[in-house]
Amino acid sequence: MPEEEEVATDSAAGRSFWTGAITFGLVNVPVSLFPANRGRTVSLKMVADDGHPLQRRYVCSKDEEPLDWDDIVRGYEVSKGKFVVVTDDELEAIEPRKSRDIDLQLFVDLEDIDPIYFVRAYYLAPSGGTTKAYRLLAEVMEQTGRAGIGRFVMRAKEYVVAIIAESGILRAQTLRFDDEVRKPDDVGLPKKSKVTAAAVSKFTRDITAHSGKVNFRDFFDEYSIELEKLAKKKAQRGVDVVKAPAEAAAGESDEPGEVIDILEVLKRSLGGAAVGKKPAKRAPARKKAAAKKK
């Protein structure tokens, strides 16, 4: 369902999709969230046999009637074929009373947070008022080596979130709830068996021999790179070149140009420009795409 796509599309547009405040004690730090992660940059489009671009559209499953976004609502299947309609406003209204606040009631050692819980990372930019509270929180967390823990709701889903400071910039790391992470017992992993000191030291020797530094910026998705190379080669030779659909030309989700945008928007926001103040809408971002298809 569209939840994942929403994130990707909004990120590509470089909008902040959550605006609220971090609080610690009585201190209020108004912030906007920007994704620190993004989908793969390469996205293949669908075309017909004759090279005509294909579009996706929603149709009613009963009578195949094509639908605009305004004709669509969100529903939960309570029993086979029976749905309860739930609106965005209703979902927003049951968000925790202070859901626009990430209240940091606990500060933990950064190392206490196990990566097995990680979902996604976001950058935080100050929004509204001054940058003082933002800078203070960043400074204090960096000096103490601690991360603030809070919880918040975004796009109809609640997260535990760790607020981390690095080089004066705050970021949020969403974490899975404990019941969404299996324990070794749930998986049925066997009880620890006896190991010999010799077996362990055989491994430690090999580990030491292969220890060093890694630059994670060197890990690219080779498949995407090869895909792009092949496409460019064919384009140069003029083989299988077809017209792109209107949306792609208008710069939809995964265009490389859009990717630069988000960094620009984030830079400007950190610099104090007023962007993304509007509270995020939870309506799927497909709205725009659907409207264009009319």
Binding site: L54, Q55, C60, S61, G75, V85
Partner: peptide, 23 residues
């Protein structure tokens, strides 16, 4: 454990499906 919603046609509350069309 995410709650999964379905997209429905507003008037008859039937699930929608995606279709590809030649643009």
């Amino acid at each position: 454990h995410t709650i999964h919603f379905r997209l429905l046609h507003k008037t008859d509350k039937q699930p929608v499906k995606q279709q590809m069309i030649d643009s």
